[in-house]
């Protein structure tokens, strides 16, 4: 069922990663992503993989959930790896028709696969260990400096909060509307592409209507609760850096240094 999608879902817990300051986690994620794309040899890559693996283990989230979020992009990994496999330059190891496999091709394919897998894993670590509200909170605060460029950081964060809040509600609603139309004989599983797209109309229209009605209600509810934009707004939860946050920053910085050294000297 649609409701079972886990990509980007918080898994409540009390491990060290759960307790880290979300701002630190977001910054760490960004640096690890940069790291992943700055690894040019196997040593550097293995250091990054070790870091990602360590964070997966430390997250104390069942591995099953990670694999589930992996399932959604397995095809992307396969396609990009295959493309890389055949696009290598140099001497061919094996050749068939216009396809040839070279050593560089194999290397690229492995690199790409490992990079994407690490990317998904490490992003999942963040979303599994950080509640959506903490996440938007962290983003709002991290984006604050952008305010001087007239970027409406509070409004962006508010929109994200609301979107996160309503995703499960709308998924459930989609499920319900689909069942209701199926009960009237809607056929969504057969026919060619055009027919299938047409079959979505009875689902999308009610979904949009309901989303607008919800938006209208929500706007009223927010007004009832004195919402007047970001001005003069306080927050119940204050973010404060603790010892563990500094330690985490140090670890990531060390790995960053290690990777740079690997890249230069190996």
């Amino acid at each position: 069922m649609i409701r079972d999608i886990t990509l980007g879902q918080y898994f409540p817990g009390n491990g060290i990663l759960h307790r880290l300051d979300p701002r630190v986690k977001v910054l760490m994620l960004i640096s690890v992503i940069v790291l992943i794309f700055c690894t040019f040899n196997f040593f550097a890559l293995s250091v990054v993989v070790a870091l990602v693996a360590a964070s997966v283990i430390m997250s104390k989230v069942p591995l099953k959930l990670y694999l589930k979020s992996m399932k959604a992009i397995i095809i992307v990994i396969l396609i990009t790896s295959l493309l890389n496999l055949f696009y290598g330059t140099g001497e061919a190891i094996a050749q068939w028709w216009i396809f040839k496999i070279t050593q560089a091709g194999i290397r690229n394919a492995v690199f790409v696969a490992v990079r994407i897998i690490s990317l998904v894993m490490v992003s999942s670590v963040l979303t599994f260990t950080t509640s959506p509200t903490d996440l938007t909170d962290a983003l709002e605060r991290l984006m604050k400096p952008l305010g001087i460029f007239k970027v409406k950081t509070h409004e962006i964060a508010m929109m994200m909060t609301i979107a996160l809040r309503f995703v499960p509600t709308l998924l459930e609603e989609t499920d319900k509307i689909m069942s209701a139309q199926k009960a009237r004989g809607a056929d969504m599983e057969s026919g060619n592409l055009i027919k299938r797209i047409k079959a979505l109309v009875p689902i999308l229209i009610p979904l949009f209507v309901s989303a607008f009605r919800r938006a209208y209600d929500l706007a009223m509810a927010m007004e009832c609760r004195c919402y007047q934009g970001g001005k003069g707004r306080t927050r119940m939860k204050q973010l404060r850096m603790h010892g563990r946050d500094f330690a985490a920053v140090a670890v990531v910085a060390a790995v960053l240094a290690g990777v740079i050294l690997c890249n230069i000297f190996l």
Binding site: D217, L218, Q228, K237
Partner: peptide, 23 residues
């Protein structure tokens, strides 16, 4: 349609936060 946040206590805090109440 009237709950704003994805966590109960954060939602309840929404009103006083808008009013600028101390944390």
């Amino acid at each position: 349609n009237q709950l704003v946040a994805s966590i109960v206590e954060e939602d309840v805090a929404f009103g006083p936060e808008n009013m600028g109440v101390e944390p």
